[in-house]
Amino acid sequence: MIRVLILFALVRAAAAAELEAVVKNERGEPVAEAVVVAVPDVPAPKPARAKPEQVEQIDQEFVPRVKAVLVGSAVSFPNRDGVRHHVYSFSAAKRFDLPLYVGTPANPVIFDSPGVVTIGCNIHDWMVGYIYVAESPYYATTDAKGIARLSGLPGGAYTVRAWHPQLASPEATTRRRMELAEAGRLEWVLALKPEVRVRRAPTSRGSGRY
């Protein structure tokens, strides 16, 4: 597990290419929490072990809401609230169910299939989180400015795609081909669906919305 990590760092260090991706919506506003994944034509060397990831529950929300992980990653769901949570997923990529717990469940969940795993809490219906399980190690999530920086990419040909929880069209339609040498830049304008969410319970604090 540790070796995989070291190898990954070496590869990054060996390649100096960097990709800046910008995601906007149709109104030209920056879109945060979009995941951009670059898949090289030449498969990247598999890291020995994927680094452990975590999605916390803070103030009855998943933090971060969108979490991109490399396939095979183990994700733990530490509960930072005073209340219990019951995290589950019925997504095809990963079905799991962590019955009511406080603190961090003993075993992390291994996401061994690429795809989007939507996670919820059975007792807090408004809590929605997404774990994007990427097949490529080159991915990033846009910040509030809609910018995601992918770094340490070896030069070569890539297929780059973008995903967002509210993406109206299938993810495949966002695919781009590009030759990456030192630095590259891509921009997406995504059509987004309205978000369907359960309203937060009135007693809960926070900025819960639909």
Partner: peptide
């Protein structure tokens, strides 16, 4: 209504 899990399924 949508059946949410937690997004509509």
């Amino acid at each position: 209504v949508p059946v949410l899990a937690p997004t509509p399924i």
